[in-house]
């Protein structure tokens, strides 16, 4: 299975009810390293560890096949507060 920016974006949007899913391929093209920003209210009331676990579980199969995965997660409120735009 090879992941692309678009396929990963779609997966995140679907599985985590994300209103914003920014995916950046930092692998230089081999599809092995991604940096993602996820904005979703499923993160409400959860601390960092819980959020990461949520994402890790939702993307279990995807993360298993890539080499590097960096995630940042925000609720809609946190995202807007720091000046992020909703898509």
């Amino acid at each position: 299975m090879s992941l692309t920016v678009d396929s990963l974006k779609q997966i995140i949007t679907d599985r985590l009810s994300a209103v914003v899913a920014e995916v950046e391929d930092v692998s230089g093209g081999c599809g092995q390293a991604f940096v993602v920003i996820i904005v979703s209210d499923v993160f409400k009331g959860k601390n960092k560890l819980m959020r990461h676990r949520l994402v890790n579980n939702a993307l279990k199969d995807e993360i298993a096949v890539i080499h590097a995965f960096t995630q940042k997660s925000f609720t809609v409120e946190e995202w807007e507060k720091q000046g992020g735009k909703l898509a």
Binding site: K48, L49, I63
Partner: peptide, 25 residues
């Protein structure tokens, strides 16, 4: 750890997180 990536940090036997969490903390 039920955690898919390395590195992993433990403090006092408790799982803290990976690199993203360490950096943001």
């Amino acid at each position: 750890s039920n955690w898919p990536t390395i590195p992993q940090l433990y403090v006092d036997g408790e799982f803290i997180g990976g690199c993203d969490i360490i950096m943001s903390m």
